[in-house]
Simulated assay, not measured.
Amino acid sequence: MKVKPTKLTLKNRLLLAAVLSIVYTNVIAFIIYGTVVYHPQHMLFDYVYSLVFFLALHQTYYWLQNQLETRLKAVTQVQRYTLGLLIFMSASMLLFTVIALVPFTLLLQPLGEIEFGMEVRLNYTINLLFSSVYYLCFTAFHILRNYHRAMINAEMLQKEIAQAQYEGLKNQINPHFLFNSLNVLSTLVHIDADLSEKFIDQLAKAYRYVLEQHDHELVVLKTEIDFINAYIFLLKIRFEDKLQVSMDIPAEKLNHYLPPLTLQLLIENAVKHNVLSRESPLVVNISVTEDDYLVVQNNLQIRTQEFASTGVGLKNITNRYEYITQRKVFFHILGKSYISKVPLLP
């Protein structure tokens, strides 16, 4: 991850430099003189130079980071940070010499509290410690800040991708449902005109539901069941007594939510993959468990298929639930039954 520090405003830079200059000056004074109160003229000079020093040091830090990111892209982050620390400490020494030592030598005389050479060596030593801590703290702060921003951006991007995928999943349902319904209608037209008319009425009702719920992530179970009754009517026209569907859903569960067309896809999946006949009708039972799972169970009469199943319908349901909730969906064979369980959401 690249460290791209955001520059502070002038007000914040001045405030930060002022705080650091007070801490820096008092620490040096206490180490050198054993007190934070010493010669007033010397104190004033130390506060002024340290304020200017930290303002310049702050600008040096940002300039150095930009140069390292631009010119040393090929090296590792550890190498870049290590080199940056060494350069920053050297720059700090240079700034101290130009901003503090030279003006002090020219403007003030050593005031006798401590031997001047010793004071200079202590100042350089403390300066190196301060500059290294300054560099490490600022770099760590900006790494954490950029990491946090990257996590937020990644999360937003993931949500956008998931939303786009979810929209794609919903868009798969409309043409799929319409295609199957028109296939049924094309068969009925040649068999029974009156039945075809009833079929068209129910198809219009069902497809109106599809269009109305297209932009919704969730729908009330009662509304889904109203649609399913129309959908089952369409299936019964085609299959007659070859298909039997029963529902046992407590009234208090009807206000729960699920992704629209989930129940339709589960029933369609049962019809698609099983043999339907008068001798062995496909029996579909729809119920709700105490832990708020909608269960669709059918007897297994697996159809011999010319082509392998793609599983698009069940994948669609699984993917939509993964987008909406952490509760899992279940599809499994138990004995001679196929059972689908999808969670109802409060």
Rank of each mutant, 00 (worst) to 15 (best):
T187R: 11
L266A: 12
L188C: 07
N285C: 08
Y207G: 09
P259W: 15
S246V: 03
Q244H: 07
D192E: 08
V288T: 13
H273A: 14
V283S: 02
V245L: 09
L211V: 04
I249N: 06
H273Y: 15
T262I: 12
I286D: 03
Q264D: 01
V220D: 14
P281I: 15
L243K: 02
N285R: 07
R278P: 05
N274T: 00
Y209D: 03
L185V: 00
R278H: 05
Y209K: 02
L261D: 13
V275D: 04
L211S: 14
A230D: 10
L218Q: 12
H256T: 08
A193C: 04
L243Q: 01
Y207P: 04
S280F: 12
L195P: 00
I191K: 14
D192S: 15
H214P: 15
E240S: 11
N180T: 14
V184E: 03
V284N: 08
T262F: 09
V283N: 10
K198E: 05
K205R: 14
A193S: 10
L254N: 14
R278C: 13
E224R: 10
I267K: 07
L203A: 07
D194S: 04
L243I: 07
K205H: 01
Q202T: 13
Y209A: 09
P259E: 08
N274D: 00
D192N: 13
L235N: 02
A193Y: 14
L235H: 01
A230S: 14
Q264H: 08
N183V: 01
